[in-house]
Structures are given as C-alpha cells and as structure tokens.
Amino acid sequence: MFEAALSRLGRMGSFLWAGWSGLAGLALLAALWQAGHEAYGAFILPSPLETLAAGAAILSDGRAWGVAMLTCIRAVEGFAVSALAGAVSGLAAGYFPATMRLARPLVTVLLGVPPIAWIVLAMIWFGSTDGTVVVTVVVAAAPLVFVGVAEGVMTRDRGLDDMARAFGAGPVQRLITLGLRHVAAHLFPALAVALGMAFKVAVMAELLANVGGIGGELARSRANLDVAAALAWVTIAVAALILVEYGVVHPVRSEFERWRTAARPWGVRR
C-alpha cells in the first residue's frame, strides 16, 4: 500500500517536473514573439509582456471570468457529447465491419466539410444560441474520436480474445476486460486532439455567431483594433485549453499507459 502511494507520488513528481520542458518550449515561443514585436512595432504585434499585462487587466475584471467560463462550458459540453457519441459509434463500427463500411465515407464527409460551413448551417438552424456553438464543436470533434476508437477496436489482439475464450470468458467479459482496455490506449490521444479542436471551434463559432464568450470578445477587440486585447484573449483561450488538457486528459492517459512507460529502456523514461 505504502509502496503504491510512493510510486504514485513519484509519477506525479515526474509529471510536474516534465512541466519545465513544456515551459522552456513556451519561453522559446515568447522569445520569437518578442523578436517579432521588436521588428514590427507595438501596434502590429504587442510584446508578450504587454499581452500578459492586458490579459491580467482583463482577468482582474470579474466579468471576464464569466466570459471565459462561458466558452469553456460550451467547448467542454461539445467535447463531452463528441467523446460519448464518437466512442459509442466507434465501438460499434470497430466490432461490426458492415457498420464500418457504412461509416467510413460519412466520416470522410464530416471531416472534409470545413467547420466554417457547419457554423453557417448551425446559425441558420439554431440562431445565435449556445446550440450553434455546441453543435459545431460536436460535428468537428466527434469524427476524430470515432476514428480513434474504431482504429483501436480493429487493431485489438485477437489472440487475447482467444485466450480469454479458452478461460471461459463470455462476449461481455471480453469486451470489458480486453476490448475497452485496448481501445483506451487509442481513445486518449484522440480525446486530446478532439479537446483542442473543441476549444478552437468554439471560439470561432462564437466569433461568427456573435454569441459572446471569448470569440465575442475577440470580435470586439477586432472592431476596436485592440491587438493587445485580442492577443490576450487568445492567450486566455489557450491557457484554458492547457489547463483542461494537462489537468484532466494527460493524467488519466498516463494512468492507462503505465505499462508503455515500463516497456521503455530506463534512459528515456522521462
């Protein structure tokens, strides 16, 4: 028990420690940004510090939190629906090849239509409401989850299925102990991509549908030619995404992927 707690603490420590390299990457981006600022001036590209200051100013105002929350809630709502719908239909398609043959072209169509076209359609159908944003997010993100899960099911090791059958496992037991466990490894990368997509599309839909949120604020900054505020809002949107991804998606995934880490030679574990 103590050992398990200790190993968990160790893994958490190494996860947090890995944050430094992430921070280094962000610092590199900031350096490029600063160089751009110095070359083109504050009007075209405000400096990172200015942007951070603008962001802090925005966030010190209580209303801004509500705006950011609104976008987060819409993105996460759409993400949750896509995750559920994509995972369920992906499982069905993976286990039943006929479904897969029907679904493949549909997925190609869904992924091929640009999100901007969906926004226009959703605006016509739902008007300027939350529904427009959530539907656009679902249409953009669900196929990603679907493909990930279906691939997962199709790449499962049938030898393990046979093994379980030899030990008397029924179809439901095989699905729970083998199928879902294998699919999880494919599901989490797909979820991470879908989550990023959800935030991006939510902001875009808000901007175009004029329904408030971070997208709405971006539209206003553009109208006022306030580049610093626009960049600040972008930064806030990215920060929210990073928070959700590294706070939820990655810890859950690493819990499922412990055996992969164990398989790596010791030198490259981190």
Partner: peptide, 8 residues
C-alpha cells in the same frame, strides 16, 4: 505465444 495482457 504467451498471450499476456500487455497492460497488466
């Protein structure tokens, strides 16, 4: 083949 669950 041993057919062990790789994740366990």
């Amino acid at each position: 083949e041993s057919r062990l669950l790789p994740w366990a």
